[in-house]
Nucleic acid binder design. Structure first.
Length: 350
DNA sequence: GAAACGTGGAA
DNA sequence: TTTCCAAGTTT
């Protein structure tokens, strides 16, 4: 007997979008697309997937690349840990798996950066294994279909998905069933204003029948974002400036930026107390610009200072790079915005 | 298990 | 201008 996920899969087979990663079921391609799509919209993923596959067409080219090269391709996509984990995983697969991508869910989930969702996606799409994904879409469409508010990591949701999807895979491949649930959630059973008139299972949907569609998903109260004050220093002489690579195990790890002081409060910074500034002979110093940069978990108020110096000595791990070359480095969007302001400023004062 | 971890698009 | 995210994983 065909169940609702069978009908969704039939709908998916007929109506799926033409997306580049659906042209290949090779685990490398599926892995790359699934990691890029983590917490990322399809529209934004498209170009990055194309560039990534173009630059690193297989596991060997990715493993052989430098961290800088991988981050350059990932630049602007966010959650950069994904790129570092993929690079590390590529090297593990080459050195420990003879370059062969692992073929089962239990092996795949051992890879760095691959959790339950991604392991199930790869195992089902590339290897036809009957393991099922639970992402934001699946959580939402099951909440509506059963008119039940599943909590995060809800065991009862896992059991329902498992049971319903198993039935559907009597008729369709697990990869199609999984992608059907997500495609349906992304395009029909959307978070807001779902297209119930186009839904092929609306007559079976508990929330629809009870007029409770708008109650799902349950809204949770968000945490207040902490505000941080970043002071970036454009220290330059004759078109050269300082740049350094972040190495701490937190945000933007391994990306490059101007020397930086972080403050918890919006206070004037004592410039003479900043070590690398104290040793410099400063000809001119002033603020270029202050901009707000919004992250998922905090607000950064970033100020860029212009500091023109007589000499630009070697200092610690600072690089001395030409101002025009900064954008060749993997940098955050915040740095990108600051540099746009800087270039605009320089072009209008020369 | 809560918090960290980015970004850009839609309402 | 705010708010809310979008095909999650790690610590």
């Amino acid at each position: 007997m065909k169940n609702w996920l069978s009908f969704l899969t039939e709908w998916y087979i007929e109506n799926q979008r033409d997306l580049p990663w659906r042209k290949s079921q090779h685990p490398y391609n599926v892995w790359v697309s699934e990691v890029i799509l983590q917490q990322t919209r399809v529209d934004q993923a498209l170009n990055y997937y194309h560039n990534f596959i173009q630059t690193f067409p297989d596991i060997y080219s990715l493993a052989a690349a430098s961290v800088d090269d991988v981050l350059r391709v990932w630049k602007g996509l966010g959650y950069y840990r994904r790129a570092l984990n993929m690079h590390e995983t590529a090297n593990v697969i080459v050195s420990q798996h003879n370059g062969i991508f692992p073929k089962t869910y239990n092996e795949i989930i051992k890879l760095r950066g691959v959790g339950k969702y991604t392991a199930a996606a790869i195992a089902s799409i590339s290897f036809n294994e009957k393991v099922y994904v639970i992402d934001g879409n699946v959580h939402r469409i099951f909440s509506r279909f059963y008119a039940k508010a599943f909590s995060k990591n809800d065991k009862s949701l896992e059991q329902l998905v498992e049971a319903d999807a198993q039935l559907a895979t009597k008729y369709y491949s697990p990869g199609d069933v999984n992608q059907a649930m997500m495609e349906f959630g992304a395009t029909i059973c959307k978070p807001s204003e779902p297209l119930c008139s186009q839904c092929v299972v609306s007559t079976m949907c508990a929330a629809y029948k009870k007029h409770m569609i708008s109650l799902f998903p349950i809204k949770t109260d968000k945490k207040q974002k902490k505000t941080l004050y970043y002071h970036y220093f454009f220290v330059h002489k004759n078109n050269y400036c300082y740049l350094y690579q972040r190495t701490d195990n937190n945000i933007w790890k391994n990306l490059y930026e101007f020397p930086l002081i972080v403050h918890l409060k919006d206070t004037t910074i004592p410039l003479q107390k900043i070590p690398f500034l104290a040793s410099l002979n400063i000809k001119n110093i002033y603020k270029y610009k202050t901009i707000r940069h919004i992250l998922s978990h905090r607000i950064i108020v970033a100020t860029l200072y212009n500091i023109e110096v007589d000499e630009l000595p070697e200092y610690g791990n600072f690089l001395i790079v030409s101002v025009q070359n900064i954008k060749q480095f993997p940098i955050s969007k915040l740095m990108d915005k600051l540099i746009d302001n800087l270039y605009f400023h320089l072009n209008n004062h020369n």
